[in-house]
Design a protein around this nucleic acid. Structure first.
Length: 274
DNA sequence: GTGTTTGTTATCAA
DNA sequence: CTTGATAACAAACA
């Protein structure tokens, strides 16, 4: 489930395609041909590839999307040659293939087909990007701004508040649960029930958990892999997500609970989150 | 055959 | 206007 740290990892790794030129593309073929890549950026969970000319290629991986970079023909990192029939091969679900003039390639794979690629002009892309709230790792995400946001939606449940991309951009199911654990707050709490100290802890925890995960190249819990096909290293650092019925790593007495909340699997330690 | 997994949007209800 | 619940999308897995 690519969230901010996973997309950020891909953004950094894919800076390698900057200055490359499209030779062949399986989608938007005529528009991409001979276009040069100016930059690779990220906004929320969206990857932004700016092209020569006015257009941008926006990519959203949704739940099972992958972006795999292959340095050059004949030298594959994963599972041999991309063969749609090969079992367990990440390339089994290739939805788009891009070939650059230097023969390197970029693959967009997506098992569940929820992800998308859009080729848009400046106005169209801004319309999509501007719908998102503050970047939690930007200077704009001050405690004051976070507090103002919280005050705007006092009756929301904390988890729903944190998942809302129009308020804070980039948090998903994993990091919402992890940030709440780190801040020792139950995700089921109402926003207005948070004390100032809890608000402060939550603000710090969000930033801390995202930075740590980026440092470990993201969470490969299920489908997410890095652009070279290897897994991100954050799973061992997860404290609640995917740890149902396991003992809490912090208090060492509580057991991690998993409930259905806000339509999602929601994890917490019954003992040390209040 | 059933339930679960989750990012986002749409729709409906209170 | 706010909130919350549900379905839809698709495919795999237990």
């Amino acid at each position: 489930m690519p969230e901010l740290p996973e997309v950020e990892t891909l953004k950094r790794e894919l800076s390698i395609i900057v200055d490359k030129k499209f030779k062949l593309a399986s989608i938007f073929a005529s528009q991409l041909k001979n276009k040069k890549i100016i930059s690779v950026e990220r906004r929320a969970k969206i990857l932004i590839i700016t092209l020569s000319g006015e257009q941008k290629l926006l990519i959203h991986l949704k739940m099972t999307g992958q972006l795999i970079y292959q340095p050059k023909v004949g030298k594959l990192v994963i599972g041999g040659h991309p063969d749609p029939s090969a079992d367990g091969n990440p390339f089994k679900y290739t939805r788009a293939e891009f070939i650059f003039t230097d023969q390197s390639k970029l693959y967009f794979n997506d098992l569940r087909k929820f992800g998308w690629l859009k080729l848009l002009n400046k106005t169209e892309s801004e319309k999509i990007l501007n719908k998102h709230g503050v970047e939690p790792l930007s200077k704009l995400f001050t405690f004051q701004n976070f507090q103002n946001l919280l005050q705007k939606y006092p009756n929301r449940k904390l988890k729903q508040f944190l998942l809302d991309q129009s308020l804070i951009a980039g948090l998903g199911n994993i990091y919402v649960d992890e940030a709440c654990f780190l801040a020792k707050i139950l995700p089921t709490r109402t926003v207005k029930s948070l004390t100032k100290l809890e608000q402060k802890n939550l603000h710090t925890s969000i930033i801390k958990i995202l930075k740590l995960s980026i440092a470990k190249k993201g969470t490969s819990a299920k489908n997410y892999i890095r652009s070279d096909g290897t897994k991100g290293g954050f799973v061992p650092y997860l404290k609640v997500y995917g740890r149902k019925n396991e003992k809490c790593k912090r208090c060492k007495t509580g057991v991690i609970q998993k409930i259905k909340f806000a339509g999602r699997g929601t994890h917490f330690c019954e003992n040390c989150q209040g």
